[in-house]
Design a protein around this nucleic acid. Structure first.
Lengths: 179, 179
DNA sequence: AAGAACTTTCAATTATTTCTGAAACATATG
DNA sequence: CATATGTTTCAGAAATAATTGAAAGTTCTT
């Protein structure tokens, strides 16, 4: 990526805009409990028309080999990037899933599994606690837990539906229905 | 707290269950970029039938006065708890909003304002970057940014609708439509 | 206006998370 | 099998974020 010296008043170069987008994606991720590097590697690949090697990623984001390796592996787990193998090349290249509907599905799937499903198990256990229905302390606990459980179940079902939804249905029916 | 000698196999006492819930809420919050203490104070008040003072909160969660004060303030900002003032009492008591639909609205409102709205502004700026439509690098950048923008706009509208939705509509129509 | 009761602030400390870099590991090639 | 090329691991370092606690601030009471 070339260095460039344009004055502050002109529109940013493509390289600058990419850097800004990568930065933005990193900052946003952080406030949703996702590691900055994970998001930045994702952003870099999202705006890259061709597959990048680990070396490319290290160089562009100035991160260590270890970090790049771990991060790429996690993105593969999420399903947000793919390996691209080339004949006669030892090293691996990576491309991002570019379809944002698909990206959304991956993110919902991963986070639902990791956090919502786990939480529902704990809630089920706690909400079943037997107790004295006349005790105001017990009542407060039990009714709050039940309400949260209900909300968790509703969220779960909604997210499951959203993941399964067809592209055409999504853009045609769903959006027009609500928006 | 009362004397209790039950073996490990029996159901947990109410106090234990509350502690577990508070812990669960704290852990879950952490993975969504929300501070542990914020969530734990919220959880404590959610399962407390009566309003608690700052002292109560400090004691139950063993946190410092400063932490309790800051956290309570932030929960007030989110709209998740209310002050309860008592005649002839200097100190303030706090109660949680117990209605989980309302709680959901507060959380959506706060996070949308803080993160989504801010992000949309940045995206608008970046997606407008002029460039050479024949350049594959530019194309990749521009089309990805446009897609993300579209997704952000759709999310925004959906969240706005969700916040405005009536309770009856939500439980009757929305859920039955999808779930 | 001085003291009591309570709240807020913030610099310093502590805890947690993330990242680095070098060594170990894997695999292809001469 | 020795070397070259590339990947993974993980203990310690560095960066970030959360928390404390004591001092300053506020408000009520007499």
């Amino acid at each position: 990526m070339t260095f460039d010296d344009t004055p502050a008043t002109s529109p940013p170069s493509l390289a600058e805009a990419k850097a800004q987008f990568i930065h933005l994606w990193g900052v946003s991720a952080t406030s949703w409990g996702v590691s900055k590097t994970l998001a930045q590697v994702h952003a870099l690949l999202l705006v890259s028309p061709k597959a990048l090697s680990t070396e490319d990623i290290m160089a562009q984001l100035t991160i260590s080999r270890g970090n790049a390796s771990m991060t790429v592996r996690e993105l593969l787990d999420w399903g947000l990037i793919y390996k691209e193998l080339r004949l006669g090349e030892r090293r691996e290249f990576f491309v991002a899933e570019k379809d944002m509907l698909q990206v959304t599905r991956c993110i919902i799937r991963a986070r639902k599994r990791r956090e919502l499903d786990q939480m529902k198990r704990s809630l089920d256990q706690l909400a079943n606690l037997p107790g004295d229905a006349a005790d105001v302390e017990y009542q407060a606990f039990h009714s709050t837990l039940t309400d949260i459980q209900q909300l968790a179940t509703a969220s779960d079902k909604l997210l499951t539906k959203l993941m399964q939804v067809e592209r055409s249905w999504f853009w045609d029916k769903f959006l027009k229905l609500f928006l």
